[in-house]
Structures are given as C-alpha cells and as structure tokens.
Design a protein around this nucleic acid. Structure first.
Lengths: 392, 392
DNA sequence: TTGAAAGCGCTAACAG
DNA sequence: CTGTTAGCGCTTTCAA
C-alpha cells in the first residue's frame, strides 16, 4: 500500500502538499502539482478511505437497509438495490447491503454507531415506520424508497400511485370499459402498514370515481387459490365487471385459471392487468398481461441521489419525488364484450375453443415490450423512464 | 460519538486497558473488566470501525461484485446477494455491493486499493474469468459463486450440475420416459463463457447416457418465439421425445404455447421441466412446472462463509463446494404417453378439451411447493437445503 | 495486571 | 505557495 508519504517523498514535497494537490483543497503551483500527480501515478497511489474517513468524518459509504426476504420479496425489491448501487457508484459512493433483523432500530443504532456510513437508505417503508423517527432523532441523513403516512420533511422517492391508478383507469376507460374491479393483496400479506397495498387501493377507487367508472374494491388475494375464489365471487356478485386489475402475481395465476374454467377468453371477455409487477413477470402469462410496471430501479437511483445531494450540500431541505408506473400494454387488454351477461360457457361446461385456441393462434412477439400505449381518453402521451435528475 | 477515551475516563483506567478488556486481547482483571464493560454500556460505546481498520488493516467489509443487470438478471442472481449479505451479517461482517462497469479488472484494482475491503466475492463467473487472475496476483482474498473452467486452488460455491442433471434424468426415467430433450440457452444469451449454460448441457447429456436414456441436445432458445420454434422443430425431427427440460423461462412460455397449439396436454402428452429456475417462477405457469431450483441463497451464504473462514484462519487452502438444485415436482411431470406418435390433435385443429379442460379441472394447491419427490429409480432420498456449514 | 506512548494514513489548521 | 504540526480513534509494543 503506497501512502501519501511515499508520494511526497518521490515528489520532493510535504505530505500536506500532496494531499492538497490531489484534492484541490488549496492552491498548488502548477509545476508542483504535475510533479505530484506524476509521482502518484507512477506509484499507483490510492487514497486510503479509512484514514481519510477517520479525520474527515465522511466515508462516502451509504447503507441500504433491506428487509429479510420474507414472503413477497421479488424482482421489484431487488431492483431498488441494483439501481441504488449503480447510482452510488456513479457518484463516487459505495453501497452497503444491511439485512434487517428482527429489531430494525437496534440494527440501525449499531450500524450508525460504527462511524462507517454517511447515510442510510430505507426501503419497505411502512406507513408508520419507526425507523424514520430514530434516524431523525439521531441526526443521521437518510432517504426512503417509499414513504410514511405523513412524510413531513423527510426525503423519499416513491411510486406515484395516484397517477398510476389514473393511467390504469384511463387505459380501460379508453377501451370502453365502464366497470373496473381491483384485486388487492390481503392486508396482512405484507405488513398491515404496507404503503403500496393501501395507497394503490385508495387511488384506484379515487381515479375510477373521477373518471366516472364503476369501481369494485374490497377484494383480496395472495395466492392462486385465493385469486381463483375471489374471481368467482366477483363474477357472481358483479357480472357486469369487464376489467380487472390484480396486485399479486400469484393471485393472477388463480384468476386466469378461473377465467379459463368459465370458458372465458382474455381479452375478449375480460381485460386483465397486473399492477406493480414487472414486465418480465407479465410476460410469463398467457396471454401476456398488460402491466403497470413499477420504476424500481429508478426509485433506487433517486433515493441515493437525493441522499448524496443532501450529504454534499449540507442543506437538508427534503427531496420528495413520485414516479408513476409505466403502463406496458400486453395482450390482455381489449374492449369490453358487447353483452357481459352472456360471456363464454360456464364452469365445467364445453371448454372447446377456449384456452386451446387462445394459445394456439396467439401471435408470438419478441421483446417489443416497451410500447407505451395509454388509453385514448387519458390524454397524456407515451412516457418513458424520465429524468435521472434529483430535482427538488 | 463516544470514544475509547470516554470509556477509559469513566472507568478510571487507560485506553489501552479498555481496548484490551473489550477485545479480550490480553488478560484484564475481572473486576476492572466489569467496570469497563459497565462504563462502555452506560455510554453506549461503539468501536469506530475506521480507526480500528486503519491500524489493524482489517475492516470486516466484503465486496460483492455484481454484474450490470443485463438481459438475464433475475431473482436467482439477486438471491446470491441476499444470502451473502445475511451470512456476512451473522458473522459480524458487512457486504458492499459493487456494480461492475465495463472494465471489471480496473474496477477491482480501484476497489481493493481503497483499503476498505478485506475480501471479494465474485459472481457471474465465466469459464475463463480474468478477475480471478488479478485477485490472485494482487493477493486479495476472494471466493466465487460459480467457478472457472479450471478452478485450481480457488475457493468457490457452485451448483452441482452433474448431480442436478442426474436427478432430473432420474426423475423422468422413474416416470418411465425413455427419451429426454434439453432446450438450452443460446450460447450468446449470456457470455459465451457462461458456466451454467455449458455445464448443464454437458451434464444432461452425460447423465442421460449413464441412465441409458435417449438424449436430444443441441437445442437453444432465449425467447418465447425461439422456444416455440425450437419445440416445433424438435417434435418434427424427434416425435419420440416425451420429456423436455428447458433452461430459460421465456423459452418455456413459447414451448407451452406450441404444446397447446398442437392440442397436446401436459403432463399427459409431454413432461416438461424447468431447469435452474426458481419455484416462484415455475408457479406462474399452467400447469405449475416441475423445477430444478438453484440453491441461490445458499450459494451466496457459502461463498461468504468460505471467504470469511479464509480471512480469519489465514489459511488459504481452498474451499470448494457444489450444491445440487432442488427438484420441486409440479404438475407437469407424468408418465410418457403410451403411443407418442398419436398425441393430441395437430396445429390449428380441433382444440377442444385441451387447455380449457386442463386449467378447468386443475386442482389449485396453496403453497406446498417443498414436496421433494425424486424419481423412484434415482435411489436417493428427498433432500432439503442441507447444511450451512462451510466444510472444506 | 496496567499505563504510557507510538503510529496507522490522512486532513486541516497554522506558520513560514 | 508550501512545510510543520496536531490530531481523528484505535491497536500494539514496551515499561512499570
């Protein structure tokens, strides 16, 4: 390990001059500077982060607290991490992965006490998250992916649920649907305080109301079996429903089974969309489902950027960013059936010319998933991952 | 930040004594020790990792180099990371996520030059991976998830492809199949040097040969469309194939479409299994596919454990561990049809009573995915995630 | 069994 | 503009 002293010796100057030259901390004569730089390069000098951190109190290390991979820990959550790590790397920071144990606050106290990290990035934030209080009180800079019920002056990047719901509603409304049902997670699948579950439900209801669409809520399912049952119940009670949005991949599997069992076809008899699920998952279905894909990676990036921004500016005005999901139209969206009451066969009935045909004549497309088609009525143009800017 | 000096002051001893007492570095009188411990607890003392690392040259920080999330970056890869982070945490270490840019070796040089990390964990290891040479030469301790062509004396945790293939072959053979086809990734989907792609192909061929099963290889597909085409070609050329193993999720989607298009049923007309894919993904299919699920999280854990073991023992005899995939039997496995030549309808023909029925009478099961049933002929008992021990 | 002192590699006053 | 000096918080000799 070559140190500052080695460089100083070789360049015939004092260590502090080398430090200054390399960091631009104070003016250094051009000639001296180049001499120092050459010496540093020749020796392959790398500043020791520990020593630097010890005195400067800043390590350029961020911690990402991620929850134990419980039930629903999928691609989405992990993309936060990769997005965050990338953004950190681009800005000269490092990202530490800290698995959260049973006592998050204790974990945080330990972690921040180490003097190792400059800031914390929280994910899986609950509406009443206790971690924010601790961090605020401890004076540890942090930002969140997701947000608490009342974010106040904390920094966060979260999904724009209102806009997402609005886009979804506009999509089905644009296709001519007048009734939309929403199949949510059960409230205890994740924490009962899990923001996305609650906010998505609320916002779908609100968006439907505003659009003058009939909304059917209060449905929950976390497994294929529950999804199937929920769908059957739904159709019994509300045979007029022609469009359904589903939160849970597994529930969607059950819904598809129930749809097929009734002899219904998608999208002719029902428009089905997956909410907060990646296009990669939606692609696994037959037909390929329309999806509202969460901007996971971008949220991770944003979270890191706003954290670093705060760290570097010293200014702690909060950054709060909402990013809508991206509507990826699949093969499960279509106009509503002319006569909803007379759809398909019935359970156990003649199943001919249903799923077999459907998959049979389905046109296989390659990777053209990025087509952003929003319903005509929506009025806003196709949108892509927008800026990377931290913007207030 | 309370420091050693604060504790020393409060306990009325010298800093060096506090250090010794807290680290057990040298004998300290029991009475003094408790006094120190109490003082430390009262002050909420946390050792500063930077200061400690600066002198001890050991930070207890490990770096996980993960590749840019290119094409096939899924759940599997991410589970390495979570497994690794957990294992690290349990052993008092920290895991840094280092996204790999275009020049991995440069990245590594930089990273290891920082004096910040004690060791490196490599993933997405290619058969001729250049990173290992650098790390070896630089004397940086490392271990791998995956392995190079000739691992020599490097430490790694990898999938036991031979055993996995053997289990798969035994499974289908046990069901009575005499012919097995294998649909691999195309060689350029990942790096042309991507170990799993190559090893799995080889081992399936070998296992089939040993089991006296007719093997059809040389098939590749990375997308649904390619999967569909590959399957159609396969059936044309080898109508005797009754079992098919598929590496790629997307290809499997295409295969299922092609199967349905022919009016075939699964598993009656074809036994289909997914290789190196998580059970969560297999669950998305209809019917739920039999899977050989990679022990991703465990590989991550093992990688970290062997790295830390080497770090702490100072002994650099390599640890090399192979862990087979877990066979999760789904609803896509069954005995071969009596007369393979007369299966189902043909493309575009009467699709009646096919997929519709299949999904219709499918029994929805909840979460009971852990059933380990290995083929009768295999002769080895159900196996679960085995030990966590690092074992040499 | 304990204390004093040196120093890890760096930054940041302060003099020159 | 540059060199000297004093630490950051800790571990580790070396004496006592």
């Amino acid at each position: 390990m070559t140190s500052l002293r080695d460089v100083a010796k070789r360049a015939q100057v004092a260590v502090s001059t080398v430090s200054a030259a390399l960091n631009g901390t104070r003016p250094v004569a051009a000639e001296t500077k180049t001499r120092i730089e050459r010496a540093a390069a020749e020796l392959g000098y790398r500043p020791n982060l520990l020593a630097r951190g010890l005195v400067s109190k800043r390590t350029r290390i961020l911690a990402l607290l991620f929850p134990a991979p419980h039930s629903g820990f999928g691609l989405t959550e992990m993309q936060f991490a990769t997005g965050a790590a990338e953004a950190a790397g681009e800005l000269g920071y490092h990202l530490m992965l800290s698995p959260e144990n049973t006592d998050p606050v204790k974990e945080l106290r330990y972690l921040t006490g180490l003097g190792l990290i400059d800031g914390v990035l929280l994910m899986e934030v609950r509406l009443d998250d206790e971690r924010t209080a601790f961090l605020t009180e401890a004076g540890v800079p942090f930002s969140m992916i997701g947000r608490t019920r009342d974010p106040g002056s904390t920094s966060y990047a979260d999904i724009d649920f209102a806009r997402t719901a609005q886009d979804a509603v506009a999509h089905v409304a644009g296709l001519g649907h007048r009734t939309l049902a929403f199949l949510n997670h059960s409230s205890n699948a994740y924490s009962p305080q899990y923001g996305p579950t609650i906010r998505t439900g609320e916002e779908f209801a609100a968006a439907a109301r505003r659009a003058g669409i009939d909304y059917v809520g209060g449905l929950h399912a976390d497994s294929a079996q529950e999804g199937r049952r929920a769908f059957d119940r739904l159709v019994d009670e509300r045979p007029d429903v022609t469009a359904l949005a589903v939160m849970n991949d597994h529930a969607a599997v059950g819904v598809l089974a129930a749809v097929a069992a009734r002899g219904w076809r998608i999208p002719q008899d029902l428009t089905l969309m997956l909410v907060l699920s990646s296009a990669r998952v939606a692609e696994m279905f037959h037909p390929r489902l329309t999806t509202l894909e969460p901007p996971s990676s971008e949220l991770g990036r944003l979270g890191v950027r706003m954290l670093i921004d705060r760290l570097q500016s010293g200014d702690d005005t909060p950054h709060q960013r909402l990013v809508p999901c991206r509507l990826v139209v699949g093969d499960s969206s279509g106009p509503p059936p002319a006569t909803p009451g007379e759809r398909g066969g019935r359970a156990g009935g003649p199943a001919g010319a249903t799923a077999g045909d459907r998959t049979g004549d389905r046109d296989e497309r390659t990777g053209d998933l990025a087509r952003d088609r929003t319903g005509d009525r929506a009025g806003h143009p196709a949108r892509d991952r927008t800026g990377d800017e931290t913007g207030a």
